[in-house]
Design a protein around this nucleic acid. Structure first.
Lengths: 209, 209
DNA sequence: GTCTATATTGTGATAGAC
DNA sequence: GTCTATCACAATATAGAC
């Protein structure tokens, strides 16, 4: 049995606490308390609370950029899109503390601002790539203005679904349900699908409920 | 010339500061400083910072509930819907500090949670009333599942557009643009409109850009 | 109503022994 | 690497004079 290094346990515990009670409400004392180590020990591994946040953001950024590398000219199926959305929402859920206090967190750690914006842009691009693939295949019937609006809407929903969802059960912030997010994302796209594909997509979307 | 009472100036200044730098970043000292009064004076009028937040929330709640009283069975026109959305986004923009740190604020002032949820529900109901009016008039062609999804999506967008928009210009949080929000809301509805009404709605939506 | 202290507390962070 | 002790500081809030 491998022993998890304290440094990694700090990251792990912090992430869990951030997600469940919100990053601004988590003190370094709470983290060390939860782990049964001393505050001093925590500061031996990280020179500040901000450093913990930043390192978690590094992980998030890696996961996201990796996920968002969508091939520009491949033919993407509805199935593949569903799978992609599923992974996307899972990643968002893992780091949901970021999204739940997004404006706040980014206003305090301004090195993260530009990096987050870059990820947002990549998200929009990924959605656009998928939609354009659908359009090329005749699955999606949409003009330019609608496409722009749709992609921005998808980005907004991908960003804020998790926060919107926790509003409904602010009492226990542990439970998350990425599925309903995927369902909503699909229903943004469905009205623009060719009639032939619409029913299939609707059936598929229900699997995520 | 009428002199504004200190108590009201505190509310006014707090709201402005909350909106521009975020409620969690605003201290009672910053408020009193900005107004050129002493911290003690501030605490003569409000026994805590939370009381200021709550009183601002009272105003917000009044404004919102008033706005959301949508007649259940009247025939609503596209124009009227546009006007409604415009007012809605203006109100959200006035109290945008609430939305920008929503999870955080509601987690610290838990008396506000249930009240906010109630307002959210009323919003969804209002959207549903409008959509159902459209449907009765033959303007909107949509089945039940799609309608549910659409109304929830409208609620999400109404809630988070302002926060999503400030992400783009986190540098100056003063400027707000409710127009683009209205535009997006309309584009959520447009795909479900009867073909005859779609073009009119698209033209109308562009006025809000 | 308004001011000038000042008390209080919580949090981030460091020093130095083990 | 880990602990105990402690500092420094900022923010909320109060007391009492004017």
């Amino acid at each position: 049995m491998k022993k998890i290094k304290t440094r990694d346990r700090i990251l792990q515990t912090s992430l869990a606490l951030f997600n469940s009670v919100g990053e601004p409400n988590v003190t370094t004392l709470l983290i060390s308390d939860e782990m049964d180590i001393s505050p001093g020990n925590l500061y031996y591994h990280f020179k500040s609370k901000g450093d913990i946040v930043e390192e978690l953001f590094d992980q998030y950024e890696l996961d996201m950029l990796d996920l968002l590398t969508v091939p520009e000219d491949a033919d993407i199926s509805l199935d593949q899109q569903g799978f992609f959305l599923h992974l996307l929402f899972e990643t968002v859920a893992r780091y949901r503390f970021l999204y739940q206090d997004l404006v706040n967190v980014l206003s305090r750690y301004d090195q993260l601002r530009v990096r987050f914006k870059r990820i947002q842009k990549k998200k929009t691009s990924a959605f656009r790539a998928i939609c354009e693939s659908f359009r090329r295949q005749g699955t999606l019937i949409i003009d330019q203005e609608e496409l722009d609006s749709l992609c921005e809407q998808l980005t907004l929903t991908a960003c804020y679904w998790s926060a919107f969802d926790t509003l409904s059960h602010l009492d226990d912030r542990e439970s998350v349900d990425p599925g309903r997010g995927v369902y909503h994302m699909m229903h943004l796209v469905i009205p623009y699908l060719a009639p032939a594909d619409r029913e299939e997509a609707r059936l598929m979307s229900r699997d995520y409920l």
